[in-house]
């Protein structure tokens, strides 16, 4: 760790994040294998579609636990929009899409990240509820169960594209971000660029943890 690095996340946050992310990607891949006949080759490594279903269903349980912790842990920072700065940020698209001289300063999570969090939280719950019912589909009237399949597919439609955009923006789309979820420490320049308001607030309140200070 270099001197002057800033602490962005604690170990618990990172463990939950990776629990959610890894279970989500396993669910996406195994779900893909069940949803499209042309992707059924994805079941070969686990020895068949039936095993893929088991992989999917039990990974679903890990996902549910990670999702619960994620919501409890992040809803205050990432689940609530702040006015007017978040609206200003959205109007400027955070400087991501066109050139903006002064990107409006927002807190620890920008509105794009908040939208991602809310989509995952909402549709994650939808996936959990519909998935559990689909696991035991004979327990409810068929009209309900059919709707669960529809909702599960809808959640897939929403979560999967978001997942890839998140992957891009957390890595090469925003250099310096990934370390927030690996070591938990980020550079001051990164914090200044990505979350200037958070940096200022932390500094003013004296809560900022700087490595070596």
């Amino acid at each position: 760790m270099r001197k002057g690095m800033i602490k962005a996340t604690d170990a618990f946050e990172r463990i939950i994040h990776w629990g959610l992310a890894i279970s989500c990607i396993v669910l996406i891949i195994s779900g893909l294998g069940m949803m499209y006949h042309s992707f059924s080759f994805l079941s070969i490594p686990v020895g068949g579609l039936k095993n893929l279903k088991y992989v999917h269903n039990f990974t679903g349980l890990i996902f549910i636990v990670a999702l619960l912790f994620s919501i409890l842990m992040w809803w205050k920072e990432a689940g609530i929009f702040k006015f007017p700065e978040d609206v200003e940020w959205i109007k400027a698209a955070g400087g991501y899409l066109w050139h903006v001289d002064n990107v409006p300063e927002v807190g620890k999570y920008n509105p794009g990240q908040k939208i991602f969090f809310l989509a995952v939280a909402l549709f994650g719950v939808v996936m959990a509820v519909s998935g559990l019912i689909m696991w035991f589909p004979l327990s409810l009237p068929v009209v309900w169960v059919r709707t669960m399949y529809f909702l599960h597919a809808l959640g897939f439609f929403v979560i999967t594209p978001f997942f890839f955009v998140h992957l891009y923006l957390g890595t090469i789309g925003s250099p310096g971000s990934a370390s927030a979820m690996f070591s938990g420490w980020v550079t001051r320049a990164w914090a200044k660029k990505q979350h200037p308001k958070w940096l200022k607030e932390m500094e003013e309140s004296g809560k900022l943890e700087v490595y070596g200070e």
Binding site: A92, Y96, V100, N102, V103, V165, G173, S174, A189, Q194
Partner: peptide, 28 residues
């Protein structure tokens, strides 16, 4: 996926400014 790639090769990533102390940092 295509959108992310296009973003990367046209608009480019959002890189921290070299000089982290500059207040009015430019957008991406």
């Amino acid at each position: 996926i295509a959108g992310s790639f296009l973003h990367y090769i046209t608009h480019g990533p959002k890189t921290p400014d070299e000089d982290g102390n500059q207040v009015n940092a430019k957008g991406g």
